[in-house]
């Protein structure tokens, strides 16, 4: 059951303040991810403070890096159920977890960050892994 929208509003705003496009419907997901070209990061947001509380600031830090995805989108697991389920169909080789992050190039997942790779780590440490993945997979595109 979704949390009270007022409770999760700050978590949504933390993403949109970074300029990340929030996808709240399956149609919005299809528009953003269907026939996707270039480089993209999709952040599966979560209310869980254990992991998402560090993943959001980690992403903010990583986006300060010189190499980064051309497109940024987010869905909110446990909140926007339809949109999250649809987004996960685009990275169906990976089991669902939240928070998590998928890096895509031309519609193909090139890197996936699972919840277990976020838990218990500092934003700086998570961001370091993310920027390394940006360099590895997106370096030539920027």
């Amino acid at each position: 059951m979704p949390y009270n929208p007022a409770l999760v509003a700050p978590m949504r705003e933390e993403m949109t303040r970074m300029g990340i496009q929030e996808l709240t419907t399956a149609a919005a997901v299809d528009a953003a991810l269907g026939d996707q070209r270039g480089t993209m990061l999709v952040f599966v947001n979560s209310v869980c403070g254990c992991a998402a509380g560090n993943a959001r600031p980690a992403l903010r830090l990583a986006l300060e890096h010189g190499v980064k995805p051309q497109q940024l989108a987010t869905v909110f697991a446990g909140q926007d159920l339809e949109a999250t389920a649809r987004a996960r169909q685009f990275f169906s080789d990976y089991q669902p977890s939240s928070p998590s992050m998928a890096l895509l190039r031309d519609g193909e997942v090139v890197h996936f960050v699972h919840r277990h790779q976020i838990e218990g780590r500092s934003p700086q440490s998570i961001a370091a892994d993310l920027t390394a993945a940006f360099d590895r997979h997106f370096g030539a595109a920027v």
Binding site: G49, G53, H114
Partner: peptide, 17 residues
């Protein structure tokens, strides 16, 4: 700012093990 939802739990609470 981050938001923590699980104060006062076991040290491994929420961790994938």
């Amino acid at each position: 700012m981050s938001h923590v939802f699980h104060p006062g739990h076991h040290a491994l609470h929420g961790i994938t093990v």
